Amino acid sequence: MTNKEIIEKTKEYVKNKLEGEGSGHDWWHILRVYNNALDIAENEGNCDIFTVELAALLHDIADWKFHNGNLDKGSEIADFFLSGLNVDKKTIEHVADIIKNISFKGANVENTITTKEGMIVQDADRLDAIGAMGIGRAFAYGGFMKREMYNPDVPYEIHNTFEEYKSKNGSTINHFYEKLLLLKDKMNTKTGREKAEKRHEFMLSFLDEFYSEWDGKI
């Protein structure tokens, strides 16, 4: 089986698994991350594009948020699936490592992504968490988890450990300060940083509008 055929099989598999998902971690999120990863890879160069493609497509196949904080579940599923397509072991291990380490785990938690391919996919994933897409996904996820949209009596928190971060239960607006507004400065690649600038500014404008409407000023 050629690499192109493996990518097409992977797209089909992920689409069947995630199509119609309602928390913002659906097939269309995957496709946006995939396209962004390809664009970043093209601009950055000098990377294994096959690994980038597979990791982008499989990065949310079993997100820890829906599996009791289990960071290994997605890697295990990806390993099993790719082994069934006879992908070489080195590539499978690389993809599995990216999937395990891609997630944001708290403002002050060290990023454990080390390879260029991983950095590219992580940037692509983080780009879809900010800007207009990020705002839409944040409120979709908040509603899915039955969280308040905003509660001015509950301040946001800066998390120092993954345990603190995954146990949080604040409002969607708090999530902007606990994660989304931090991502611009956590981008790994030059292309990722450039893409993040406009999206970051859009979120700041949105928050200005949100607070003005909340307070009845406009």
Rank of each mutant, 00 (worst) to 15 (best):
N3M: 12
E5C: 05
I7H: 01
K9T: 03
T10M: 06
T10W: 02
K11R: 15
Y13K: 13
V14M: 08
K15E: 14
K17Y: 02
K17H: 05
E19F: 08
E19Q: 11
G20V: 04
E21A: 01
G22E: 14
H25D: 07
H25K: 10
W28F: 12
I30C: 01
I30D: 00
L38A: 08
D39F: 07
N43P: 01
N46R: 11
C47L: 08
F50G: 03
V52F: 00
A55W: 01
L58E: 01
H59I: 05
D60S: 14
D60N: 14
I61W: 00
D63V: 11
K65R: 15
K65A: 02
D72A: 11
D72M: 11
A78D: 00
D79T: 15
F80K: 15
L82Q: 05
N86Y: 12
N86H: 13
V87L: 09
K90A: 14
E93C: 07
V95G: 02
D97H: 11
I98S: 01
N111K: 12
N111L: 10
T112K: 15
T115F: 12
E117P: 01
M119T: 06
Q122N: 12
D123N: 12
A132D: 13
I135V: 14
I135Y: 04
G136H: 07
R137C: 02
F139N: 00
A140V: 03
Y141Q: 09
Y141K: 12
G142V: 00
G143F: 08
R147K: 13
R147M: 01
M149T: 13
P152K: 15
V154I: 15
P155S: 12
E157W: 07
I158G: 07
I158M: 13
E163A: 13
Y165I: 08
S167K: 15
K168W: 12
S171T: 09
N174P: 03
N174M: 08
Y177N: 09
E178D: 11
E178N: 07
L181Q: 06
L181P: 05
L183C: 03
K184E: 13
D185L: 05
T189C: 09
K195I: 11
E197S: 07
E201L: 14
F202G: 04
F202T: 06
L204D: 08
S205N: 13
S205Q: 11
F206R: 04
D208L: 05
G216E: 07
G216Q: 06
G216H: 06
